[in-house]
Design a protein around this nucleic acid. Structure first.
Length: 658
DNA sequence: AGCCCGTCGGTTTTT
DNA sequence: CCGACGGGCT
């Protein structure tokens, strides 16, 4: 072996990167903006840069890599470690939310937060909203109905993420709710008060508290800044105002900050993402070097012709022109279908053809705008015995049995968690909201943690079930040193009884829970486990115990377009490319939203490497608006026939005119 | 009258 | 899966 470690570089950067990638990888200090087109080797560039920094003597744990999913962070660090050595595995990485969480846990006391604050997820927020609405008792009738919990939480999220007032949000995005303006504002205040009182932090709060910490506490801020010498941010086009502020504050005076993104793929505007963060990055950080990655390594030329035509229709973007060396390949197809079931049928037949010709199921993906668009197709796939995995839409963690299980755990971790109490009590026969509320109040009043349940004795027919629950909870309270695995076992033991009564498919659900126990095994701390589950829920069931459940080789993928970002398949279907569904009707009266839908179409089409099939039913009735939808997505109007093959059902093409 | 339970209709997109 | 709603039990 060579003696002097500096004289050798394990990696031959020149041979493995193109000139633009190489330039980005070699960039050491100062602000850098990398505009990376779809499939242009963005991940590769980040991985090599991590390796390069480490090789040049930057301490691994002084490098911070922020991404949007934990999966992509750990994936990147694994690959860097493979490329160089395990020093790269010590690089700090994660999502904005998980990083904020880690920093807040450490420095919480500095801002008057207990270190064991609770992270609440979407459904927790909705449940809290439910309580608040009940307490507020807003007059509401059939024709002037007060918005649902989900709508209200969406509204508040939107306001926070965009950094505007609730009043303004209602006026802009929910004008039909202006008549409830005062009540909505009050509901928002009550929601905040409830969170503050119980030290509940929702996703937005994690970012806000962290931003405030950096902004208002100079001492802690400096400590964090000095700890991280080089910061990298992936998917920068999807950051919102608060995240941009966090980046700015983290960068400190050194400003060794590299952001990577593609403004053409910004699809999270609904949760406050601002393309402007990216477009204005050079102004925020004077002296920014800009590097464009324009060679596409993913798709063949016919697909790129289509995607270039699609994205040409957006008004505001960094100019870039993608090119590929993959010539040849088939023209993308736009196939009209008589109705939804014909569409499902068509897709299944095409999939069977692909499989018969030797393609592997995991090289195929079907994409759609919204989770429920695939219901009919899922049935058709089942009928034809085609196994699939679905990403997006319902989450593993959002299924009832997982949530039930988590609720027991949460009550044990925090006996004042009213929402979870409510949930586990309603699982018992003869106990409804009223009884549950009384029990909770009794526990709260006892002010003795879990021991408070001892003060409650029911006299009704609900008593036997409740006594069993009491036993479970008291067992958990008794043994402070109970291992987390034992707690899990006990809960499962207790809960299977309820599970069997409640669901016909209980064997499958029991399996899910057993798998959850194996995930729990890796933790020694219940609170840590609960935080991680809230931030990074495993998103599919029936997989092999890993938190990052990848689709296995014998299944094809169904996915919302949002969940497919960053991924690629040889064969891609886009269904429901029907004007009114995609773009959705609700986006049509707002130029910005419409443009986001267009970028969404771009993201969908750029997932394909070899084959792209786009389909739409020619007639669909939209109940909400009373309209009949009968033309293909407007985003494809501008695409000429020599780029996109248009197909009609036999015998219909002739009578189908515009 | 108060409370529980079964059914039905409607779902953007996600950390 | 959730919330709203109406029937029926205690």
């Amino acid at each position: 072996m060579i003696d002097d470690p500096l004289s050798r570089s394990a990696i031959c950067y020149e041979n493995e990167l193109n000139p633009a990638q190489l330039e980005a990888v070699r960039f050491m200090n100062g602000p850098l903006l990398v505009i990376a087109g779809a499939g242009s080797g963005k991940t590769r560039t980040l991985i090599y840069r991590v390796a390069r920094l480490v090789e040049n003597g930057v301490r691994p744990d002084a490098i911070l890599l922020l991404t949007f999913t934990k999966k992509s962070a750990s994936h990147m660090l694994e690959r860097s470690a493979l490329l160089l050595d395990d020093r790269c595995a010590r690089v700090s990485g994660g999502t904005f939310h998980s990083f904020a969480n880690a920093m807040l846990r450490r420095y919480a006391p500095g801002i008057g937060l207990p270190h064991d604050f609770t992270i609440i997820d979407r459904s927790d927020s909705e449940s809290i909203m439910g309580l608040i609405k009940k307490e507020m008792n807003v007059p509401s009738d059939r024709h002037h109905r007060f918005p649902g919990n989900r709508t209200l939480i969406n509204l508040f999220n939107r306001a926070v993420n965009k950094g505007i007032s609730i009043e303004e949000t209602v006026a802009n995005a929910y004008p039909h709710l202006s008549k409830f303006m005062d009540a909505i504002i009050l509901a928002g205040q009550n929601y905040d008060a409830h969170k503050a009182k119980h030290f509940f932090l929702d996703y937005d709060d994690l970012l806000i508290y962290f931003r405030n910490l950096l902004r208002d506490n100079a001492e802690i801020s400096e400590r964090i800044q000095s700890r991280y010498s080089h910061i990298m941010v992936d998917e920068y086009q999807d950051t919102n105002q608060i995240q941009a502020e966090i980046i700015f504050l983290l960068a400190g005076d050194k400003k060794n900050i590299m952001v990577v993104g593609d403004d053409s793929q910004s699809i999270y505007g609904f949760r406050g993402a601002k393309i402007k963060n990216m477009l204005e990055f050079p102004d925020t950080f004077p002296g920014t070097q800009i590097i464009r990655l324009e060679e596409n390594y993913r798709s063949n030329q016919p697909i790129l012709d289509l995607t270039n035509t699609v994205i040409d229709q957006v008004s505001e973007k960094f100019s870039k022109t993608l090119f590929t060396r993959k010539k040849g390949g088939l023209k993308p197809v736009l196939a009209a279908m008589e109705n939804e079931s014909a569409q499902s049928h068509y897709v299944v037949e095409k999939i069977k053809d692909l499989l018969a010709n030797g393609s592997s199921p995991d090289s195929i993906c079907v994409l759609f705008r919204a989770g429920f668009h695939s219901y009919d197709l899922e049935m058709e796939l089942n009928k034809n015995r085609c196994p699939f995995v679905k990403a997006g839409g319902f989450k593993f963690v959002e299924t009832a049995h997982i949530k039930d299980f988590m609720a027991y755990l949460r009550v044990m971790a925090n006996p004042l968690d009213r929402i979870s109490w409510h949930r586990i009590l309603l699982l018992l026969d003869k106990i409804g909201p009223k009884t549950a509320q009384k029990i909770y109040e009794s526990v709260e009043h006892a002010n003795d943690g879990l021991w408070g349940v001892k003060t409650v004795t029911l006299k009704s027919s609900a008593a036997p079930g409740f006594e069993e629950l009491k036993e479970l909870l008291l067992a958990a309270a008794e043994t402070e040193t109970l291992y987390i695995q034992q707690i899990g076992e006990r809960i499962l033991n207790y809960y299977v009884g309820i599970l069997k009564k409640k669901y016909d498919d209980h064997p499958k659900r029991t399996k899910d829970l057993e798998q959850l126990l194996t995930i729990m095994d890796r933790y020694d701390d219940v609170k840590q486990f609960l935080s991680d589950m809230a931030l990074e829920p495993p998103n599919s069931s029936g997989s092999n115990g890993k938190l990052t459940a990848e689709g296995s080789a014998d299944r094809l993928s169904l996915s919302t377009i949002h969940s497919a970002k960053g991924l690629e398949w040889r064969h891609v279907f886009i269904i429901w490319a029907l004007d009114g569904r995609f773009p959705t009707l609700r986006s049509m009266d707002d130029e910005n939203e419409l443009e986001e839908e267009l970028r969404l179409m771009y993201v969908a089409a750029t997932r394909a490497k070899e084959n792209l099939f786009i389909t739409y039913p020619m007639r669909a009735y939209d109940r909400a608006s009373g309209l009949v939808l009968d033309r293909p997505s407007r985003f494809l109007d501008a695409v000429p026939d020599y780029i996109l093959e248009r197909e009609f059902p036999t015998g219909i093409g002739a009578i189908y005119w515009d």
